[in-house]
């Protein structure tokens, strides 16, 4: 009997969905808008995150060693830095390499090349390029370096020169993350409320029907079932439509956004994560449809 009821309820939901043509259409349309907002938030978070990450990548500090510093000592400093939890990566630039890079950078400038030749010996010290996991951690890394037993071989740490810029940038990045998250939450809540109320209206138009079903002797689940199936269908259809609308959109916007902000191409992100993306919208849509329907129908069940 259970399977027969499931079959009848499912069929009832499908038939109602079809025969309620206009109401279904309007509900799906509003849910498409809701899911579109959610999908848009996901994509803008991808852009925002990658912009923030690329800015963070640009922030690093460099430790310059005295020319007299021995390579094993420098490598010991490098090791101790790598062991720090705050450090993302450390790059060792030897004296020879530093000279090489310097020459490369100034090969157009005859004066500098000439002066280098004049000096004969390599005047440059070795260096470590340090990248922290979070820009706010450069201060503690610098303190660690300056307090190190090998600090005698340090020439200078360029954090102190760039401290202001680094601090300001890191607070801007932190703030934009927070703002991004808050805006996303507010927009998502608004979108959900709009969809919820649309479904409530749709159920409101069926209130007499619900009453009649109860009076004819339908159990609560038998009455509720078709409406939940209908809600599921609204959500499913809306998630398919919303997911598909992002295809031309990312196709059109992907290159432009990439040129403007850098970061990944949205079209390739969309294609690469198509199923995850659809899954998120599908779950959001169907949950919204089913949960809103069951909340909205409750008040009409008390017969």
């Amino acid at each position: 009997m259970f399977s027969v009821n499931i079959k009848r309820i499912t069929k009832g939901g499908f038939v109602n969905f079809w025969r309620n043509g206009w109401v279904s259409f309007a509900t799906v349309l509003v849910m498409v808008l809701t899911l579109f907002v959610i999908g848009g938030l996901i994509l803008s978070n991808v852009v925002l995150t990658s912009v923030i990450a690329s800015l963070e990548d640009k922030v690093d500090i460099t430790v310059y060693f005295r020319t007299s510093a021995a390579e094993p000592d420098i490598l010991a400093v490098k090791d101790s830095l790598t062991k720090l939890g705050e450090v993302e990566s450390v790059e060792y630039v030897s004296r020879a390499e530093a000279l090489e890079r310097f020459k490369e950078r100034h090969k157009e400038n005859a004066l500098i090349t000439q002066s280098l030749d004049e000096v004969g010996d390599n005047p440059l010290g070795a260096a470590l390029n340090i990248q922290a996991k979070d820009p706010s951690q450069y201060a503690s890394i610098t303190t660690f370096l300056e307090g190190n037993i090998l600090s005698g071989i340090l020439d200078k740490v360029n954090y102190r020169q760039n401290q202001l810029v680094i601090d300001r940038l890191s607070s801007v990045l932190r703030a934009s993350r927070k703002v991004g998250i808050s805006i996303s939450i507010v927009l998502a809540v608004i979108a959900f409320l709009v969809a919820f109320n649309t479904i409530r209206m749709a159920i409101y138009t069926s209130r007499e029907e619900i009453r009649v079903m109860k009076l004819v002797g339908a159990s609560n689940w038998y009455t509720r079932g078709p409406f939940l199936v209908e809600g599921f269908l609204h959500g499913f259809l809306a998630s398919v439509i919303a997911t598909l609308t992002f295809w031309p959109l990312t196709f059109w916007l992907g290159g432009r956004i990439q040129n403007f902000f850098g970061g990944p191409n949205l079209l390739s992100y969309y294609q690469g994560n198509f199923f995850e993306f659809f899954l998120v919208l599908f779950l959001a849509g169907t949950m919204l449809g089913v949960v809103s329907s069951s909340i909205a129908i409750r008040r009409y069940m008390r017969v």
């Binding site: 009997m1 027969v4 025969r19 009649v212 079903m213 004819v216 002797g217 339908a218 038998y222």
Partner: peptide, 23 residues
């Protein structure tokens, strides 16, 4: 108080369905 989205036949069948009657 008929169910507006169901035909005459389906309205009657609905009462049998909720009573758990076989197809």
């Amino acid at each position: 108080r008929l169910l507006p989205n169901k035909t005459a036949y389906e309205n009657i069948a609905f009462a049998m369905e909720v009573a758990g009657q076989l197809d």
